[in-house]
Design a protein around this nucleic acid. Structure first.
Lengths: 342, 342
DNA sequence: TTGAAAGCGCTAACAG
DNA sequence: CTGTTAGCGCTTTCAA
């Protein structure tokens, strides 16, 4: 075990070296007025020469502010999260805060992480793991700790920003119907997420609006991961009366579905139309390019930061929920229903 | 501006409430011996009841250890980085450290971030931005601050872990040659990265080994991003005597190349073979599935953590460089050269 | 087995 | 303009 104080240079070392009190060094560090120009210069030079670097922990301990925004994420694997983070990152870059990201695969440990942040590591927290937020709300709200749930359907649980998942699903079905499809399979997302539920609800509502087949077998459960899309599509394809189009609750599952469709010897979009949801970067890259519902992920990240900043300024501000619109992005994976459909 | 101390619960509050000195509370917190069982129990209960959460900054200020490992990354957009992080994350999860990730698009600010870490935020640092490491080495080495460069070809600059990029490129060309290709285009990576240079060197060496065409026009410069792969492939395709196979220095550019090849009305692999490098998750997902050189990215992350840990224990340990092997992953994007090639 | 007290490095009054 | 002096919340001797 190695002990403290390696070769650190503290404000005191610098003060001694420059022949001033360390309060003066602190003043120079913080650009405060009332320091004689010559003194400032001398101190600055010493700072430079000695390679001084501030200890943020000490500073934060003293001021009660860390100038950091925490970001709690379950997994970085998905492009989906990456996009949100890009937005968050970009927005934070415009402030004088830093982003501090914690990953955790272990659901069990999440509350622990939250505590770390609340304990002073960061001045506010963005949470992108909206399974069940209950484990967090307690500590967070009790302390009035500034936080925002991202991609979560707000309620009384806490401030949140999300997308119009319900409306997006409606849009998707409307589009497929406009192409003549009436038998549309749906692959659900994880149903313990509000987004998963909302997209399913949207699908059902739209189906009802158009008086489509109300066959329960047309709904196959997925979990937002690609393999589940593959499996669900296989189930859909093996139906006695198979659908002519498949709408997956996210792009990853749509990719899985496309794979399954190809394996079944069908062509996309000629024999089977496919739609996704999210508009991840890959959606435009696959072939045929995926028609999907765009979720403004980056924008969501940006808005989340903006909201968080307001809570950092005023922790007492009442909970706010912002919902961002989703759009239809037409590419090449859907085609009009051919009369001669098998 | 809001001031300090919101509704924090400190060790002192707990001590008062439990009727002990705060030293005792600290002892309970740290599982130290010599606390009467009843006292311990009472304190634990109070801790629980009051919702105490430790202030890591204070603790770290006092102990000189933060139990955090910093990770400095330029961008999260690429799946490539995501994979390394997964490995890092998984490995860290097995220790009693936490991962703390800083992203920075702004090259100019990177040294600043490093200073933050060195200043006490973390006990060690992993750097995944191996453009030019010189700006960092100074501070890092002067302080003997534990750090490891990831995906960087080690030298005297500092400890590092990388992959056998040179060998991988050789393997790729050997494979293409075994399929009968003799005119092989190469799309380089960013040449300010050691990996970019090494892959190019490997390509040249292998080409020389096999006595392939030594046409400089067969080498098109890219920057590891998809669009550059697209552009470079276009250049290669418009050559008077076009190659029969294209080897891109990473998967992302290979995807761009595939796009360009399709746009040119050619089929993959029938009319043109394509190889990538990295084996990102998407490589298996595109169609045709991409034949590529696998880089053990996750493993790289894991090893980097292991190495870092040794430096945290003994900052004086001499620089070490670990190189991981790369493998050929055969999928569907390469085909034997047909005699009747156009 | 417990309490008192001394700082970790820094900022922010308060005096000069 | 500059120095002195309290702590921020915590761990860790040193005594008791």
């Amino acid at each position: 075990m190695n002990h403290n104080a390696p070769n650190k240079v503290t404000i005191i070392d610098v003060a001694r070296e420059a022949g001033v009190s360390y309060a003066t060094v602190s003043r120079v560090l913080n650009d405060e007025p009332y320091v004689k120009p010559e003194t400032r210069e001398r101190v600055t030079a010493t700072l430079q020469r000695m390679g001084y670097v501030a200890n943020r922990q000490a500073r934060s301990l003293r001021t009660g502010r860390s100038q950091m925004i925490g970001l709690l994420v379950r997994d970085l694997g998905t492009g989906y999260i990456g996009q949100i983070i890009s937005g968050v990152d970009a927005e934070i870059a415009e402030t004088d805060f830093e982003m501090l990201l914690f990953t955790t695969h272990h659901q069990a440990r999440e509350p622990e992480y939250v505590a770390t942040f609340v304990g002073g590591m960061a001045d506010g927290l963005l949470l992108i793991l909206p399974h069940n937020v209950d484990p967090y709300t307690g500590l967070l709200n009790q302390r009035r700790y500034p936080h925002v749930f991202v991609d979560y359907k707000g309620s009384d649980k806490g401030p949140a920003v999300g997308a119009d998942n319900y409306g997006g699903a409606i849009m998707a079905i409307d589009y497929l119907v406009s192409l003549g499809h009436r038998r549309i399979g749906f692959i659900t997302g994880a149903l313990d997420l509000t987004s998963g539920v909302d997209r399913l609800t949207g699908y059902r509502q739209a189906a009802a609006n158009h008086g489509l087949d109300d066959d329960p077998a047309l709904v196959a459960e997925g979990d937002y991961h690609q393999p589940s899309g593959h499996a669900a599509a296989q189930a859909l394809l093996s139906l006695p009366h198979r659908p002519t189009a498949i709408f997956a609750a996210n792009d990853a599952m749509a990719f899985g579905a496309m794979e399954a469709i190809r394996e079944a010897g069908l062509r996309i979009p000629d024999d089977m139309s496919v739609m996704g949801f999210d508009d991840t970067p890959q959606a435009a890259g696959v072939s045929p390019a995926l028609t999907t519902i765009r979720q403004p992920l980056e924008e969501m990240g940006r808005q989340a930061v903006q909201m968080l900043l307001t809570y950092i300024e005023d922790p007492e501000r009442p909970f706010e929920y912002r919902e961002l619109a989703t759009d239809l992005v037409v590419r090449d994976s859907c085609a009009p229903l051919r009369n001669a459909a098998k």
